[in-house]
């Protein structure tokens, strides 16, 4: 009880301090990449273990002085100096580290969104770094002059642009006595796709699977002729046309799935709320992409397609995500 009360009091005081003290809030403003850490933005405080170790050192100092034991005093001074210098090492672990790239992944609302953060080490090795952001924490280490991608996952709730939360990169290297940390607020935004509805009617134009037969079936529209390549089936050779040419020619038909064209129309959906329409369109886009179909997405302000493929898929979902 008391601990919880104290903790909430502490976090209140911390939030207040962040509001009041410009030094703490200065680094909350998003900034462009690359972000290099330097001495003005690296903070250091002792860890809880560091405080306890300090208390032990104080006890050692007092007893060495009390017993006028110079060897013990020398040892205590040595250990204290080493502990102190470990603070400088902690600082050096962060100093010069830079965040070069932020590559947000894709996620539907409600599922975690992976973000890859590209760090480069600069001239010295960085052991035992830790990245915290939005409840996720990652440990990583970098060799000198190396770079690494660290992936964190952000929780998502609603569709739309998601600004990256403030990230904290910290280290307690080498002895866990001091924690050095710095805030990173890259001005990169991730995009959260709308959550597709779970069930609902199929999209208009989505045919049953059986109707789409393999290439070369009767009734396919002839698209053109091309030169014979080893491995083409003999029944596709256009013998009559080949007789007039030096080489064999082969008939080319339009690909069967090209015919499977869907029109995913915002206006065709009625009787649903704004968000439910978006959810349905998102499901249709998903299904169309899964069926390798061509589709056209008609939105109130724009029309996307007809097209197919992964690029079209992401464009459509992004457009849905950004709908007002």
């Amino acid at each position: 009880m008391a601990v919880a009360a104290l903790r909430s009091l502490l976090s209140q005081a911390y939030a207040r301090a962040e509001r009041r003290l410009p030094a703490l809030t200065r680094l909350k403003a998003p900034e462009p990449l690359p972000i290099a850490l330097h001495r003005r933005r690296i903070y250091i405080v002792p860890t809880r273990f560091g405080l306890g170790f300090g208390a032990i050192l104080a006890t050692m100092l007092l007893s060495a002085l009390n017993y006028t034991n110079n060897a013990a005093l020398l040892l205590t001074c040595l250990l204290a100096a080493a502990a102190f210098n470990s603070m400088l090492l902690a600082f050096r672990t962060l100093d010069g580290l830079s965040l070069q790239a932020v590559r947000p992944g894709h996620a539907f609302a409600g599922t975690p969104l992976p973000v890859d953060l590209g760090f480069t080490a600069g001239g010295r090795a960085r052991a035992a770094l830790r990245l915290d952001g939005a409840g996720d924490a990652q440990h990583f280490a970098l060799d000198a002059n190396a770079s690494a991608d660290v992936r964190i996952e952000l929780p998502t709730e609603t569709r739309g642009p998601l600004p990256l939360p403030r990230l904290r990169v910290s280290t307690t290297w080498p002895f866990g006595l001091f924690r050095a940390w710095s805030w990173l607020s890259p001005d990169t935004r991730a995009l959260v796709y709308p959550r597709p509805e779970a069930h609902g009617p199929a999209a208009p134009g989505a045919d049953s699977e059986g109707e789409r037969a393999q290439g070369g079936a009767a009734g396919d529209a002839l698209a053109g002729l091309r030169e014979y390549r080893a491995g083409d089936p003999l029944k596709l050779v256009a013998w009559k046309a080949s007789a007039r040419h030096a080489n064999l020619l082969v008939k080319e038909f339009e690909h069967p799935r090209d015919r499977d064209e869907r029109r995913l129309d915002w206006h065709a959906i009625r009787g649903l709320s704004h968000e439910a329409r978006i959810a349905r369109l998102a499901r249709w886009v998903l299904e169309a992409h899964a069926a390798s179909a061509r589709w056209t997405l008609v939105l109130p302000a724009e029309t996307l397609g007809p097209d197919a493929g992964i690029g079209h898929y992401h464009r459509c979902l992004a457009a849905l995500a950004l709908l007002p």
Partner: peptide, 14 residues
Amino acid sequence: MTPRPSADAHLHPA
């Protein structure tokens, strides 16, 4: 020159 993300970091993050 290879990064060394720790294997078990994800299991006990905090």
